[in-house]
Design a binder for these strands. Structure first.
Lengths: 254, 254
DNA sequence: AAGTGGTCTAGACCACCAC
DNA sequence: TGGTGGTCTAGACCACTTG
């Protein structure tokens, strides 16, 4: 150890940095178990809470994952779900080549779980986006996307309840081509889309619903679909496990 | 206190939930100071570390911000920097000598801080994306974007060093229209773009460079620019303060 | 059954901020 | 200067996972 160590750095940060370095050096690979709290106490001669703080720092960074009763493990990023916003709408692809982040994902098992349709008063922002009066009734469709039986996304779709009454959009199975085909049947074919992308830490409820370990943000994608005459017909709010997705947008210079 | 309270929920979570509820109810607004650790100790009859854990939970959620020596405050989200992935790259914008960054800010004070140009061996992924042999030398331009004197983004641009030698791209000031205009001068006008978007928690270095408070993720945007003949001429890796940005992509159905 | 992380207590000294 | 959060100690009991 270099003698020039800065005394100003807290012990837990030095321990965290040492662990991080060991991980970066490949001494611990994805899925490997790190030395436990009691082992760190002995190795560094610190109290237990100090060792825990070191782990907490690594967890907050998303590098490490603690499993009750088992140990602390280097996180493995199964990642590589690639969501193309433009070429094909809401189509999940994996293993697409030619990109910066290599995505290996063969033999994955994607599923869609239907969570229900209902009618509710529109949230203010949704009503505004759809051009409906405040408090108008909207149809709400909720779905959850799973990869290898693990949830990676929750999507909530909002549509004018009056417009879609009596159509397959009000049913669990929206039929071949999905709700966009049904909207086309109604003469409201979506031809233009806007997606707004944000990221933040999940609420405890979101973390629970997506099975997120701490240190994992969510990505929020809000897609609005417009008809040729410029009217919004659908708002779709998606909450993604940030560690599972790469969003891709490809376009020409206008 | 209701007698039906679940005993299974840890104290710190109950305290955190109570504070969260008070914030949601408007009892504490953005920027307001919350009751301090010692006050929580008295109110709930807990040890200091328990009160701290409650705050830690809210910090991890990005709801709250602790300031040394001052207190714990409800975070204020000044947010709303809107980055348009498609329209912003319009030829009219950079072709006319205007700054792309100017399309971002609205009435506030945007600044670009130049961090340097250099030549380095390309990271493997960058070399592959640019179609260069492994270890080829690339020109690296680093910039930091500030809004109201606070950093919100760091951008690192990679270009073929041989191609750009002797041009303004190798200089701190890349001239009117920026590097895209210079690439056009070289007969390598970018006409197509791909952006890949990810999000994760920042490394300590990134958090430091962007002045992020804990509980704030970063958004990574990797843009690749292609010429008309399909060759990649630039890779630009951007690291954004997730709490400051909304990315927007608007496009027609294929 | 042994070991692990999760929760909790009751102290301590420090650096920093506001008054 | 007094109060704040940041760091650290040395114990304790618990629920959980694993062998």
């Amino acid at each position: 150890m270099p003698s020039g160590a800065q005394k100003r750095q807290p012990k837990y940060q030095r321990i965290a940095a040492a662990l991080k370095e060991a991980i970066a050096a490949g001494q611990y690979g994805p899925g490997d178990r790190l030395p436990g709290e009691s082992e760190l106490m002995g190795t560094y001669g610190v109290a237990r809470m100090t060792a825990r703080q070191a782990f907490a720092a690594l967890q907050a960074e998303g590098l490490v994952e603690a499993r009750k009763g088992a140990g602390v493990f280097v996180r493995e990023f199964k990642v590589g779900l690639r969501r193309r916003g433009i070429q094909r709408l809401a189509v999940e692809v994996w293993g697409a080549g030619g990109s910066i982040w290599a995505a290996d994902g063969h033999g994955r098992d994607p599923q869609v779980e239907f969570l229900g349709v209902s009618e509710k008063p529109a949230p203010a922002a949704v009503a505004a986006a759809l051009g409906l009066p405040a408090g108008a009734i909207v149809r709400v469709r909720r779905r959850r996307f799973l990869l290898d039986a693990k949830p990676v996304m929750v999507a909530t779709s909002y549509l004018d309840a009056a417009l879609t009454a009596g159509t397959a959009i009000a049913e669990p199975d929206s039929g071949p081509g999905g709700i966009y085909a049904r909207l086309a049947d109604l003469g409201r074919k979506p031809v233009r889309f806007r997606e707004e992308v944000r990221s933040r830490m999940p609420t405890p409820e979101e973390a629970d619903g997506l099975g997120l370990t701490s240190g994992t943000p969510v990505v929020l994608v809000c897609r609005t679909a417009f008809t040729a005459d410029g009217h919004a017909v659908e708002v779709n709010e998606m909450t993604l496990d940030a560690s599972a997705y790469v969003l891709e947008y490809e376009f020409d210079a206008p």
